[in-house]
Design a protein around this nucleic acid. Structure first.
Lengths: 246, 246
DNA sequence: CGCGATTTGTGCACGCCTTCACAAGCGCCT
DNA sequence: AGGCGCTTGTGAAGGCGTGCACAAATCGCG
């Protein structure tokens, strides 16, 4: 297989035409592995075993090995994985070596926080533009950026080559914003507004609904409560415990 | 997703079907159905077909029917589902009829936004306490609540019967906060801090990592870019659904 | 009252993902 | 050099979830 050298030149289409076909479940875990690897690198570790990395990422070691095997053979039997090499590989696969430009639409309560979220910049994303439809908010400066009117979206998205958009508006306007983003050439959308977005098939959408997460937890609370209320109900103390050390 | 596992096959041979055993995938979709149902109820619909509700929730109709069948038979053949009855059923299953108390730890950039997020209150959750370790933040009023010091957590959690905690602190302190929440009797945690939390097996954890979502989108951008650079590009599986026409 | 139109509930097959278990490969020590 | 212990990479099995296709059930209408 062809592998990429790490270094200043990111692997652009020069030598790697084939894109590995990764299972969706694997892709969703790669960022977690990457975070764990960065943490390991900071502690000075040069290599890590699948067992160690799996514990740091909170997954099964067999799963981790299978995930990584899809990227190619980057480990050494009897030794483990080279931390910095693996970091470069995963970052290349995820396309994080491009320092991608992101725009954010909706500078309300949540959008304000997202605009200043340090976790984005520290992981390869630059928020380059903020938009809102409210004239009272246009002109406001947040974290070094000036809020612009949504009508400017198409022009600025083209200028800055923005491919990823974040929607943090009220649910009623989310679909209209999505349409505008698509029209402006955005091909990936992260949506924080409740509801289903209709987009062309070439556009990827990921949804984060904060209330849904709480509702799922609420279900488990309900379930746990009904278990302890059972007649002769044991409090399920016989479960095996495996807590990862940190 | 989450690092929690749930009952494989509990041997409660007593046959008390007080609580149906739902597949995890179904549980994750129930909140979406609920939101769609509320929307339908507002428009005055009394019944809805599986096809209609599935479209509004962005899923396959067969999947929706199978999901709902796990709750019991609440539809009428030839007619559809009674909207308000189904709302009540799902809210009961999710435990949303309890108006659950939630506390939030970490009133930084993100925590600030979460404390004022209207989507929580409108869906059955009351944020009843805010905590932070920074003395400069203690005493600040946000959305009618006063930020309290984290040392007060155990006392207040007991007073208010808080079972759900939200962590919005920097990653370095997340584990310590989780430990404190568990010690205070919290049994469900929604974690916005990157990293893996170690908790006892009876505590449920769900993680939301905003940067991970962007990284997954970044991967798809990378994939799409490498496909268009190739002849005969195949459109890989893209999950898009037509939404409700309104 | 009976029939057809409509829609639910579900058996079944298929595919994806997870997990186990182990052979193959690598380094180190003697 | 040779053996030994450790770790990766992977074949195989099992479980879970999805989607199809259809029988069963209900309503409306003639």
């Amino acid at each position: 297989m062809s592998q990429q050298r790490h270094g200043s030149t990111p692997g652009d289409a020069g030598g790697v035409p084939a894109f590995p076909e990764l299972p969706e479940a694997t892709i969703a875990r790669l960022p977690e592995y990457l975070r764990a690897l960065h943490h390991l690198a900071e502690t000075g570790a040069e290599t890590v075993s699948s067992e160690g990395l799996a514990a740091a990422a909170g997954v099964n070691s067999a799963k981790l090995r299978k995930d990584l095997s899809h990227l190619g053979s980057y480990g050494t039997r009897g030794v483990g994985y080279d931390v910095s090499l693996l970091v470069d590989q995963i970052e290349y696969i995820l396309g994080l070596d491009k320092n991608r430009a992101v725009c954010l639409v909706g500078v309300g309560n949540l959008g304000h926080a997202l605009a200043g979220y340090a976790g984005f910049a520290s992981r390869g994303f630059r928020v380059v533009a903020l938009f809102d439809a409210d004239p009272n908010k246009v002109g406001e400066r947040i974290n070094g950026l000036t809020v612009q009117h949504i009508d400017e979206l198409a022009r600025i998205a083209a200028e800055e080559s923005i491919a990823i958009g974040v929607i943090a508006t009220p649910p009623g306007t989310a679909q209209a914003v999505a349409d505008a983003l698509v029209a402006a050439g955005v091909t990936s959308i992260l949506n924080f507004a409740p509801g289903v977005l209709a987009v062309p098939p070439n556009v990827d959408v990921r949804k984060v609904d904060l209330a849904i997460e709480l509702q799922i937890l609420s279900f488990h609370e309900h379930r746990k409560a009904s278990l302890t209320a059972l007649p002769g109900g044991r409090t399920a103390k016989a479960d095996n415990q495996e807590a990862v050390g940190s």
